[in-house]
Design a binder for these strands. Structure first.
Lengths: 340, 340
DNA sequence: CTTCCGTCTGGGAACGCTCCCAGTCGCGAT
DNA sequence: ATCGCGACTGGGAGCGTTCCCAGACGGAAG
């Protein structure tokens, strides 16, 4: 008698109202902790709620209020991202913490196929979320386009070149790359190469430009290897190529820590000491950097902050504030360890 | 005139009906691709849809149908998980692909604080998702408890000891640990130690038990180091301790690849060769295994399948099928590389 | 010509909330 | 005694769908 299966017929606000002996309106007011509810009514309602085991039906609430109190995070290519980009975890945590403070629920949506892409677009436009954060979108990203057209609150982490009017948060890749290359040069290196990646995004382009700017006249295009992915294996292949082209190479800037780790592996294999024979620097200050032998000198990205700021921008839009769409650039820092 | 801002007032099914000159019911039938709609009506509706820029409001749909076509994935402690457990990415992809096939949307929910925990519980009970998958829940997990009480469709990846009646997918940790330890022993090792972790879950306990079973009389409790986390640093600390206790140690089973990588680092540091002086085996067959020097012999986990099977179980429950709550154990395989 | 059935359509009635208007009550000020 | 106002409550209307029943239509079978 007592233990009815809750799954089949869930208690509604009306049941609560009936048990508490008040009206629907009063229950709603208690639920949303509004003013103008007498203590007696309030406690009658809370008692009734626990008695009937009431949980609010969000679908109905969303329908009535036209908001969901949820923000989506769109993650592309989860495979490469989770495995190769250790910053995604910190970004996610930063987003979550900012949303959590505002009592918004973060829901992550993974895109792994064409079909996913459509479904997610529908999900976003269907009122499941009030806003969206998109991480590392490439140019011509279909989701980014849908979001832009829909006019839904949104922010990017990283800068998609072809989308205007949506705020984004990022770092100054050019300056950071220039700074660490300069520092590497100042350790007395004469022949410095680079392994570049992700040239289909601003970030990749800018890191390469920064490298070039730092080197000035000493820049030699032959010593720049470009690969599509920021992967460990890209670092290995790239370094082999560099050694082929310039056996006298004495410095390498890898555009990610994962690639820098690959560079170290090759150098160890061919018996060159680091930082004795060759100085190596990376980018990201990810877990790769501290694990590497020797630990990498690299550029620290404020990944958590990146996420947090993007989330805050979305929340501000949700509050109806107008936000700057110019882009926010956070400070990076050089972390000097033992690899150069 | 033409380009009205879509954000403010979105077209509803009624607008579509009006423009198409049919009734609400017919539009709904077209939307859900039901039978019994004339070709004329169908094309009038599709035309009207694109004309007014209609997108379906899911909140209303969920309310009416009492389902959301979404499944939640609850991820605890994202920090340690994303950084230390490289399998989570594959599990996620496996889940996503299974759900995607059934046209269900995966939404990942991160739990990083007490408050998150409450909010997620509310989210799950509020009708945002039809089912839920929980990865690596510990004992006394509050979310797991809520899910169990709610009677919502659910599945676990990994086995939470204190929850009954919910299906789970896992591997046979005991047999796998026993098998790889046996194989290590067969390379002629006499003094084999273990670095165990995660003893607050079945998986950790079982790996230790498997190790013990493989060794039989040769088992020496002093040669088992236990640490809470499956982390790289745990491996480093553990190996130092083992060398202290048994300088003549010639084999190590680390309960994760990350720890095994730490073991290798220490052995290199003290000048012991691998696999010459010491044979090392890990567990997971994660990216750590192939990156390590030398590459690790380890236990391969079918991570993608783990996720897929869990998702399929949830989908089956959603179709109203009764599923076996006994637990599904997937096959592991030993991958023999160069570290032993 | 009637009957029956399959095809197609319209629209009332939910679904479970929130919003908001109308109204009651009690109390201090006039 | 009357008024005004703040505190509180009830309940109708509406959010945008789906569900489903009633009914129209047309053609084949009797």
């Amino acid at each position: 008698m007592t233990a009815r299966r809750a799954a089949s017929a869930r208690a509604t606000i009306n049941d609560v109202a009936a048990v508490a002996g008040v009206s629907r309106g009063t229950v709603s007011r208690v639920l949303n902790s509004e003013a103008y509810v007498s203590d007696a009514a309030r406690s009658a309602v809370t008692d009734a709620i626990s008695k009937v085991g009431y949980v609010r039906n969000s679908a109905a609430r969303n329908l009535a209020t036209r908001q969901s109190h949820a923000v989506g995070l769109v993650v592309h290519e989860p495979h490469s991202l989770f495995l190769e980009d250790p910053n995604i975890g910190s970004i996610l945590l930063g987003i979550n913490s900012a949303l959590s403070d505002a009592d918004y629920q973060l829901v992550s949506l993974v895109i792994d196929s064409e079909r996913d892409s459509h479904r997610v677009a529908e999900y976003l436009s269907g009122g499941f979320v009030d806003g969206v954060i998109i991480v590392s979108a490439r140019a011509h990203d279909p989701i980014a386009k849908v979001v832009a057209e829909l006019g839904i609150a949104a922010a990017f982490v990283g800068h998609p070149v072809d989308i205007e009017g949506i705020p984004y948060v990022g770092i100054d890749n050019f300056s950071a790359a220039k700074a660490i290359t300069t520092k590497l040069k100042e350790t007395g290196r004469r022949r410095i190469g680079m392994i570049a990646a992700g040239l289909d995004r601003d970030s990749g382009q800018d890191r390469m430009a920064g490298f070039r700017a730092a080197l000035g006249d000493a820049f030699d295009p032959d010593l720049v290897i470009t690969t599509p992915l920021y992967a460990h294996t890209s670092g290995i292949d790239g370094m082999r190529l560099l050694l082929d082209r310039a056996p006298d190479i004495d410095g390498v800037f890898a555009a990610s820590d994962a690639m820098a780790a690959g560079v170290l592996d090759v150098l160890r294999e061919v018996g060159r000491s680091v930082p004795g024979d060759v100085g190596v620097v990376g980018f990201d200050d990810s877990a790769w950097a501290t694990r590497a032998q020797p630990p990498l000198s690299t550029v620290h990205q404020p990944a958590g902050q990146l996420g947090r700021r993007a989330a805050e921008s979305v929340l501000a839009q949700l509050r109806g504030e107008t936000v700057d769409t110019a882009g926010i650039f956070l400070e990076t820092a050089i972390v000097w360890r033992d690899s150069a």
